[in-house]
């Protein structure tokens, strides 16, 4: 397992080097999105106010403090369960040119296929360990759709964000799904041994 550092925006060549289990840190810009902002973009058809070509997207809804000048100070920025947003993978990759989706818990086999096809990766953020991740966010540079607070579209300036673990690589390998399938196989054996099959 290798370690990588990338600056954003990411290129296809950047992400094609990665394999599941590798460790990655990112410098530059990470956009925060999740349920409400994705629903607005894709189900309500509201145009995305930022350019997502080569972008790294983080599934998040942060804790922030609004400052007198209207800017936001980060208080706690972590991640959320990605699978809820699984159905948006195709449009993000195909129509917007996103290269990395960051979140926790993994994405489906379908998303892994799409990542192989379009050249993108899923980077697993350590869920619940947001305090450490907050220190990697230097500033909140832009906030769009503030009426969705806290599920706005956020633009974060990050420094050495990570270590992130490659959960899905651009060949379509899917670490979290493989672990889960192995667990299913083992649980059948375990139940048999317990006499509960």
């Amino acid at each position: 397992m290798a370690s990588f550092q990338f600056n954003t925006p990411l290129t296809e060549a950047d992400v094609r080097q990665l394999s599941v289990g590798d460790s990655v840190t990112l410098d530059g810009v990470v956009f925060g999105i999740r349920d409400a902002s994705l629903i607005r973009m894709f189900d309500k058809g509201v145009p995305c106010p930022v350019d997502l070509r080569g972008a790294a997207l983080l599934h998040t809804a942060p804790n922030v403090r609004k400052l007198p000048d209207g800017r936001y100070e980060p208080l706690c920025i972590g991640t959320t369960t990605s699978m809820r947003m699984d159905r948006f993978t195709e449009a993000l990759l195909r129509d917007h040119g996103v290269r990395a989706i960051l979140g926790k818990g993994g994405l489906s086999a379908k998303s892994a296929e799409l990542m192989a096809k379009h050249g993108a990766v899923y980077l697993s953020v350590t869920g619940g360990a947001a305090a450490g991740q907050t220190l990697q966010v230097e500033a909140i540079e832009e906030v769009h759709w503030e009426d969705l607070m806290p599920e706005c579209l956020w633009k974060f300036r990050v420094k050495a964000m990570g270590p992130l673990t490659v959960g899905i690589d651009a060949r379509g390998a899917n670490l979290q799904l493989d672990v889960q399938r192995e667990a299913e196989r083992r649980s059948a054996e375990i139940l048999k041994a317990m006499g509960a099959a």
Binding site: G127, L175, V179, Q180, A183, R186, I190
Partner: peptide, 11 residues
């Protein structure tokens, strides 16, 4: 704990 799921389900 015999399933191997592990922290963050990464094994």
């Amino acid at each position: 704990n015999s399933t191997g799921i592990g922290p963050q389900g990464l094994g």
